[in-house]
Design a protein around this nucleic acid. Structure first.
Lengths: 344, 344
DNA sequence: TTGTATGCGTTATCAC
DNA sequence: GTGATAACGCATACAA
């Protein structure tokens, strides 16, 4: 591997001259620049990132940590963050952290291999975040309970959990449904449990009695779990005990839909269903599923902007959090499609 | 930021001692190790990855480049590669490279920020790969035409393109279909174009005449394209001109299915359809779609193993390629589900 | 405009 | 078992 030293030697000029030429410094002659570039090409020179980072005391990279990059909400977030960072010429690298592997993410954080991190995985513990968030590496965490982060350089991006789950329940009620079942997802998901609470609050607000038999617990939040748990709901639809099903996620709803159709239950004629999150798949099935869009992209755009402000040093956490909250019109929006019947 | 120098100063011992202690070297006293660790904690010491990489002339990371981490085949690949690398304690980082942004990927490659790369994105050009693949950074590329890579340290992992597309066409024919439409996907996708060729070969082999009116070109390979293009097929189903549709990808098929159902066309009663790739979504719709599994995971496991062998220096490219080819039982498998009717 | 010197944080090779 | 010291490849303040 050729280094700038080799170039300097070949051209018989100083290393610093080479360095500056390569960085297109204004204080270097045009002819030297050309010579240097040619020599670089000739020697097959490639820059050494580690050396640059070491010297600059900056890596120019932002870490995006996720438990599973396949989830649609992740891509949405990714695209937005990517775009924001691209404008500042900051590199984005994605690292996974899940139940069976979080070493890489932790190592990248603890070894200062980034300038900032956005953590969308719940498998990096609160303790870890609190321990390592740092002026030279602020950490933004998402999807956790609001109270657990206590570090000047850790920002907990919390959704507007107050209203979550109420919107769509109200909607079902407005459409004339009274017997609304709820399908819970993964126990470790903060989002789905808040939706459940919103569902409960709304029933109460409308003075509907809560039928405990209409609460179903899936083991997880995915398609298969929705498919499986719906087995238990089928009988109650036939008997008129269930008019609508609120699945905590779109994936659950899609799985449920398939099970219903297989059993000759028409949606929405025999039962209405709704999901949550507005995942692409929710519109790809027949009938397309009415769901709720959390406007994750808006949120992520704000997160990215805040992060950049912190990395650039112009803002402190307090500023950033204040702005995030002020902008927090994280209003969810109901996406009406074909899976809910008007019973009135 | 505290460094090992600070620790050394605090404890009044040498930096090298600190370094060795931190790395749990056998040639350092147990008591010193303890002292050092305590001091480290006290000073809030964190290692500096750049400095380590610079010194070790190794980064311990493998780059996985993708155009879109949401695609199901990517997750499959990811999981497998992740597992293999985990066993060797190698870090995996994911970087996206697509039409609008490939700077980060190229920078990471050209600046030696990894020990090896697996490139699943077609947006890193063949020229770039040929230019930068290198003993200290071998590059494995996937999903490209076989002939374009000519570099001792670049490995082109090509599927068994010979057979691709023939399998499922044969299957449709065996089920009694004769009028088989084909829906092409994105023009830039190597995979889908090979499937098309396989389809053509198979028709010929069975001496079925090719009806050019049954070839449809979608602008891309996604759900929406499938939905859109199917508009044009509907009439030909009614008129008996089409008995089956071979969509080049599952996403296309899912989109097409929805359009068909919306138009009151029953699948598979009125028309059979098949997809390709065995994406999860293909089994989540009703009826579930018959498709082809490429066994991407098997391939990726082999790629990962080969890569590790090269990184560890035990194998040259020639060895690796030979082994990959020898192992290349990349046989695709037809996944029978409910979208094909037996017409015989 | 160019060169010199120094340092970034770490590891490794020697001595002791 | 521990301590100096020289790298690693690069950038930059300062001198020329």
């Amino acid at each position: 591997m050729a280094t700038i030293k080799d170039i300097a030697k070949l051209l018989d000029i100083s290393v610093s001259a080479v360095s500056m030429a390569l960085n297109d410094s204004h204080e270097i002659g045009e002819k030297t620049k050309i010579k240097v570039r040619e020599a670089a090409k000739q020697l097959n020179y490639v820059r050494n990132g580690s050396a640059i980072d070491l010297q600059r005391k900056k890596t120019n990279v932002v870490l995006l940590i996720t438990d599973n990059p396949t989830r649609p909400y992740f891509t949405d977030s990714l695209t937005v963050v990517q775009n924001e960072l691209m404008m500042k010429n900051i590199d984005l690298v994605i690292i996974t952290a899940n139940d069976k592997h979080r070493g890489t993410a932790e190592r990248f954080i603890s070894e200062n291999r980034a300038d900032a991190v956005i953590c969308m995985s719940k498998f990096i513990s609160d303790e870890f975040v609190n321990l390592y968030a740092n002026k030279s590496m602020p950490i933004f965490v998402m999807g956790r309970a609001p109270e657990l982060i206590a570090n000047e350089y850790a920002v907990n991006v919390a959704l507007d959990y107050e209203r979550v789950g109420e919107d769509i329940t109200e909607y079902l009620i407005a459409k004339g449904h009274r017997k609304i079942a709820f399908v819970k997802g993964s126990k470790t998901s903060v989002g789905t449990s808040y939706r459940y609470k919103g569902y409960l609050r709304t029933l109460k607000r409308f003075q509907l009695t809560l039928d405990k038999e209409l609460i179903f617990e899936a083991r997880g939040s995915d398609y298969d779990h929705g498919y499986g748990i719906t087995e238990k709901i089928i009988g109650k639809i036939a008997s008129g005990q269930v008019e609508a099903i609120f699945y905590a996620t779109d994936d659950l709803a899609v799985g449920g839909l398939q099970k219903l159709l297989e059993n000759g239950i028409a949606v929405p004629e025999d039962v209405s269903i709704v999901g949550y999150n507005n995942y692409p798949i929710s519109r790809m099935v027949t009938p397309p599923i009415t769901t709720v869009d959390l406007h994750q992209q808006k949120i992520m755009r704000r997160v990215a902007k805040s992060l950049i402000a912190m990395v650039e040093g112009s803002k402190t956490k307090t500023d950033v959090v204040k702005k995030l909250q002020k902008d927090a019109i994280f209003q969810s929006e109901i996406i009406e499609r074909g899976s809910v019947k008007n019973r009135e």
